[in-house]
């Protein structure tokens, strides 16, 4: 059975300020959803809340993944279950090399979630399964070729001094490596040049299939020409105010968002 991510009436706030005001959304393996909407409408917030960022407080609603309510789960448990977020602003972590980090991440995700109650046991956690360097090397080489990532960047610190475009590409490299079941791409297209956009889209398309569900957050129709969505949703003021097929994206391109503004909502701009 295809894995499902089910969001029900999700409300979330940051520092006491409500951002999500009742989001309903279902993303299944094999489907591609686009999420659009004006700046500050809550798209990144939604992605972060799904991934379990502790900065946000969920005040109401539910998030179900693979039949489990994951609201109380730690981010690492969610990742090990098969969720992935390609960040809009990936964090730099100085002093930690991409290669070593990715190898650990792959081991963790392959290990999968530990049985509940054994995540922080008073006894001893299960021994780690390590991935032999040779196997990791082959896998990484394959994905790097796919994304036309420069060899040198593997020895650099995570996102440290990466250009905007390099960071985005590195996020998709991670996604390709970790093979999630449901992946969210938060404005991966912003900051990519035309060639890079093509490369990234091609790689994402190569990953498309019955085993991957995608939520593509974007402001631009262009990426959707490459990664053609099955569904398009528009978020406004913390709610999904309109859903449709791929033609909705074209309509938005033409008409903007204002016609979708729900009554009584105010203009929210964050930058």
């Amino acid at each position: 059975m295809a894995s499902e991510l089910v969001i029900k009436n999700l409300h979330a706030s940051i520092e006491g300020k409500p951002i999500l005001r009742g989001v309903d959304l279902v993303v299944r393996q094999g489907e591609v959803h686009a999420l659009m909407g004006p700046n500050g409408s809550g798209k990144s917030t939604l992605a972060n809340v799904i991934m379990g960022n502790p900065k946000y407080e969920v005040t109401d609603g539910e998030i179900w993944f693979k039949g489990e309510n994951i609201l109380e789960y730690s981010p690492d448990r969610r990742a090990r279950m098969g969720l992935f977020l390609a960040f809009q602003y990936p964090m730099a972590i100085p002093g930690v090399s991409v290669a070593n980090f990715l190898r650990r991440a792959l081991e963790a995700v392959r290990e999968g979630p530990r049985p509940i109650g054994e995540e922080n046991p008073s006894g001893r956690p299960a021994p780690r399964k390590t991935i032999p360097p040779s196997e990791f090397r082959n896998l990484l080489r394959e994905k790097m070729k796919l994304l036309k990532v420069d060899n040198s960047f593997i020895n650099r610190s995570i996102n440290d001094g990466f250009s905007g475009g390099e960071k985005k590409r590195a996020e998709i490299l991670q996604m390709a490596l970790l093979e999630p079941e449901i992946a969210m791409m938060d404005e991966t297209d912003s900051g990519l040049d035309i060639d890079a956009l093509k490369i990234v889209s091609d790689s994402v398309n190569a990953l498309r299939g019955p085993k991957l569900g995608l939520l593509v957050i974007t402001h631009y129709q262009r990426i959707l020409n490459y990664i053609v969505p099955d569904f398009v949703h528009v978020m406004f003021d913390g709610r999904i105010v309109r859903s449709g097929g791929k033609e909705l994206a074209l309509e938005l391109e033409e008409r903007g968002y204002e016609w979708l503004r729900p009554e009584g909502s105010e203009v929210a701009v964050n930058d």
Binding site: P75, D76, A79, M91, I93, F101, A108
Partner: peptide, 18 residues
């Protein structure tokens, strides 16, 4: 940094290790 911690955890690393 909490955001760095979240980034690593979002890739499957347990909090201690992150």
């Amino acid at each position: 940094d909490e955001e760095q911690l979240f980034y690593l955890m979002a890739r499957g690393l347990p909090k201690d290790e992150a």
